[in-house]
Simulated scan of single mutants.
Amino acid sequence: MSDLAATVTVIDACGRAGVPVLLLSDPGMGKSSLIRGIAAAEGVPCETVLGSIREPADIAGLPVVTDTGVTLCPPEFARRLAEAEAGYLFLDELTTCPPAVQAVMLAVSLDKTVGDLRLPDGVRIVAGANPPDRAADGWEMSPPLANRFCHVTFAPSVDEWLDGMTVGWGAPPASRAITADKTRVEAVKALVTGFIRHKPEHLHAFPRTADGTGGPWPSRRSWAMLAAALANVRDDDAAARQALTFGLIGEGVGVEFLTWCDHADLPDPAAVLADPSIVDWTGRPDRVWAVLSAVVGWAASAATVDSWRKAWGPLLATADAGAPDVAAAAARPLAACRPAAAKVPAAVRDKFKPVLDAAGLTGQAVA
């Protein structure tokens, strides 16, 4: 399996989820050529910004006095991308940017904000960097900036380089990313929340060494980014799943998470709503929680009275199976997302009265 193909897949999956990617390699590996090639293959523009030769105002925007006050006028590269409504913004030589420029790139990388201009959703953010010790006047990435990227080591093989020399660099491998539907999005969220329920100490683990703060590490932000991006990668694409996971939460925790996912084997949340008996509710609490989390997420995204009422079925089954604490934990978010016209089932009122009291639903109509 081509590593370059996995890299292209990760870039695509992250782009669909609005997650910025950082390509890390020695100088001369062809990072900018890859991004230009991907953009050309998709028929969208690619704007390259060299932070090492920019001042903070060149990226954040220059202040301009208008009749209504002072605005930050966005630079031309941002205007061109906004007009195109799609494309790639390639932030090159990120580790040669001084701290003041890195600080400006915080908003650009994650919020897609340049000056007072919000870039369209169709614009994808990719950065390129050399290790600080191999960059000209290199700077370590600040922890807040590092935690905003999916870090991908970029090292094309000899065969991939030979292919590029032969056919040109404008034809990168095809992406294997998929467009996640609602069910898959909720299922992947459940994998993440189920793992954190199992290993809460991994929710936020700031690195203990200075070197570690410039790489990927688990935080509330990076877990949310992983859930969003991983939904766009096929379950059988091991190379892309691993690169994406390691790139957002680090290798150590990433191995634990992927191992947990392999053993979770979660069912389709829509199938569980239709027939709660397909799940063994007396099984591992972390797996039961993950199943319930997917069910609640699916019902919340559906936002219908029918889906909300049906979602209580698996929770009641869990409570009856001897895990009322797990069921109550899932009942809190489900109660909070009640559609306006939904009536609380009588069995739910009797079983989860404390939760309904806290959500202000005790006095609601019962069916």
Rank of each mutant, 00 (worst) to 15 (best):
L117F: 02
D181I: 02
P173Y: 06
V366Y: 05
T9R: 06
S33N: 03
V272S: 06
A136K: 14
R36N: 12
V101I: 14
T48N: 02
V296A: 10
A294S: 13
W217E: 10
L356Q: 02
V344R: 03
G138H: 13
G164H: 04
G313W: 14
C46F: 00
E47H: 08
V108I: 09
F90Y: 12
S175W: 00
T9C: 06
F206W: 10
P207W: 08
L119V: 12
K31V: 05
G254K: 01
L81P: 00
L23M: 14
D237L: 04
A367G: 15
G30V: 08
A335S: 14
P131E: 06
M165G: 14
T9K: 06
V272R: 04
A359C: 06
F154K: 14
D211P: 05
V288L: 07
V296L: 09
L191R: 06
I125M: 07
P131Y: 00
A290T: 01
A155S: 15
P324N: 11
T193R: 15
C73K: 14
R241E: 09
L248C: 11
A317W: 02
A274M: 06
V10E: 10
L50P: 02
D320L: 07
A336R: 09
P269C: 04
D116T: 06
I53R: 15
A205V: 12
V108W: 04
A177R: 01
L62G: 00
G122D: 02
I59H: 00
G43V: 05
I59Y: 00
L72I: 03
D236S: 13
I38K: 02
G61Q: 01
H263N: 13
K343Q: 08
A84D: 07
T113Q: 15
G283K: 13
F257Y: 15
G168Y: 04
L24C: 07
L191D: 13
V279H: 01
V44G: 00
E186V: 10
S219L: 05
V291P: 03
D235H: 10
D306F: 08
V291Y: 01
L356W: 04
V326P: 00
G254D: 02
A340E: 14
G322F: 06
R197H: 15
R118A: 12
A347F: 03
A342E: 03
V21P: 10
G360N: 12
K31R: 12
R36K: 13
A174P: 10
E256C: 14
A365Y: 05
V167Y: 10
L23G: 02
A239K: 12
K182R: 11
A264W: 02
D320C: 03
G69Q: 05
A136N: 12
A190Y: 03
P131D: 03
